[in-house]
């Protein structure tokens, strides 16, 4: 009987047990959110999170990387080696900078200003965080340049 269960289900009974128990708990959480009147917005955001990342964001950074590789290929074998190392010293700080922008873009572009000012009691200067992000970006690229030069000297 165990064998026919395995063939029908695809795994041992313990797998089904654990799966059902944990999915039931998750389902409870889901139903708790869906029972609320603002359920439509929740579902849209939940689904949007998966679609937004898997089908949009991912392909965006895959495209960026492919573009960089194509540039690298055009430079030939000798240039390619140098280019590879140089490219990483550009993509890493760019990645961190883009990450900071992705996380803090409402603050950087002052999108939350109305609520912020009501809650914090101080105005949200529109250029304050933009300036700080640019400063951090500059520091990241400078740091990367310093490391790059140090590696060149060592080579």
């Amino acid at each position: 009987m165990r064998d026919s269960f395995r063939r029908g289900y695809g795994a041992e009974p313990l797998h089904l047990l654990v799966a059902l128990a944990t999915l039931a708990f998750a389902g409870f959480g889901f139903v708790t959110a869906a029972a609320r009147p603002d359920r439509l917005a929740f579902l849209l955001w939940f689904g949007g999170a998966v679609i937004g990342h898997d089908l949009v964001l991912f392909w965006l950074y895959a495209a960026v990387r492919r573009g960089l590789e194509r540039t690298g290929r055009r430079l030939g074998p000798g240039g390619r080696e140098r280019a590879m190392r140089a490219i990483n010293h550009l993509t890493v700080p760019a990645f961190v900078s883009a990450l900071l922008l992705l996380v803090w873009f409402p603050l950087i572009f002052g999108l939350g200003a109305p609520v912020y000012e009501r809650r914090a009691g101080i105005p949200l200067d529109p250029d304050l965080y933009l300036g700080r992000w640019l400063l951090v970006t500059a520091a990241l690229f400078s740091g990367s340049a310093v490391v790059y030069l140090a590696r060149l000297r060592r080579a």
Partner: peptide, 13 residues
């Protein structure tokens, strides 16, 4: 409350 409910989903899976 929605952040909390989603956390329950997350913990389960």
């Amino acid at each position: 409350p929605v952040h909390y409910a989603a956390a329950l989903v997350f913990v389960g899976v």
